[in-house]
Amino acid sequence: MRLLRKKPEIPFSEAERTIFFASDLHGSEVCFKKFVAAAKFYGADTLLLGGDISAKVVVPIVTVRPGRYVAQFHGHEEKLDDRTVEDFEQRAANSGMYTERMDPDEYQHYADHPDQVEALFDRVMRKTVQRWVEYAKTKLDGSPVSIYAAPGNDDPLAIDDVLRAHGDGRLRFVEGEIVELAPGMQMLSTGYTNITPWDTHREYTEDEIREHLKRMTDRLEQPETAIFNIHVPPYNSRLDTAPLLGQDLKVKTAAGAQMTAPVGSVAVREAIENIQPLLTLHGHIHESGGSVTIGRTTAINVGSEYGEGILRGVLLTIGNGKLLRYQAVSG
């Protein structure tokens, strides 16, 4: 006969966690600041930052003469001076674009050597993401709030090093990891994404995604209470509906309307159907925010409107192995 030690029961208030999840900020500084502020505003003790943290472009601000600059904003040329250049930089940052001031010779150098633009982007991205992390640490200083961050397909691999090096216990980079969000409730995270037309940084075949997920799910202690934080939504789930593109990467139309198709991951769908975790959280397809059920699993795509400076998120309360409540929020 073997005696089993009974685990002490955790009081409900201690077992419960409030989580704010957002994704696809794509470099929008105002959205990141709102994300950090959500901890206090919503009373969340955990902030979960989904993938596609970084911007997609660097906008040159070119000095044409002392105190005068020129830059492009959404296809339009803007003439700036010392009074307006900082406002332009902030507008660009809030819209999800990095900026870099440079003289005409430097600008011409990059125009003549497009192969070196990636190095410029990498440098500006690293500097910006580090500044964001320092901002979060300052704003959350003295609070118990934890931030978990995972990448998306648009995030260069270099972002991993920045987040790992500067998180200092406040922000934890969790690609490929399993963490406990609440007692007995684990979360796995990955930014692995199926192949897209855009040839982005973290695209993999369905078999590679399947193997990556299995390595993580095999480590789950209680799969039925687990949370999957996976950037790409499951295939054909209504969370992955996107405009259908032709070979020219232009949106296909029929009878004057956009054609759409499911573009999520088959491997992710299989993992959800087979494991039946409590909850899955996604981003990637900005237009397909919402929630569905797949078997007993609640699946959520939070969506994104980063270009308008609107932060879309979902407020989740979990505890005692259950999803107690959730609510989509925006601001």
Rank of each mutant, 00 (worst) to 15 (best):
V133K: 04
K79R: 12
Y148W: 05
S143F: 10
L120C: 10
E134K: 15
D122M: 12
D161H: 14
T84P: 05
L157Y: 14
V85T: 07
V162S: 02
D81G: 06
F88E: 09
H76S: 10
G167E: 06
V179N: 02
E177Y: 04
K137M: 12
A93P: 02
L80E: 02
Q90G: 04
F121Y: 12
G167F: 00
L181C: 09
M187F: 07
Y69E: 03
A92M: 14
V85I: 13
D87Y: 10
V124I: 14
V162D: 08
R123Y: 09
V174D: 00
E134P: 10
P144N: 13
M97Y: 13
V174W: 00
H74F: 12
G152W: 00
G75V: 02
E78C: 07
D141R: 15
N153T: 15
R172A: 09
Y135C: 08
G152P: 04
D141N: 13
E177R: 09
E180V: 11
G184Y: 01
K137E: 05
G142A: 06
Y107D: 06
A182T: 08
P104F: 05
M125F: 09
A182R: 01
Q186A: 07
H74N: 12
M185Q: 14
R68G: 05
F173Q: 01
M102L: 08
E175I: 03
A119N: 14
Q90H: 11
Y148Q: 00
V124D: 03
G67M: 05
V174Q: 00
L120K: 04
T138K: 13
M125N: 15
H74K: 14
F121Q: 11
F88L: 13
L120Q: 03
T99Q: 03
I178F: 05
L181H: 04
R126K: 15
P144V: 05
V133R: 02
P104I: 07
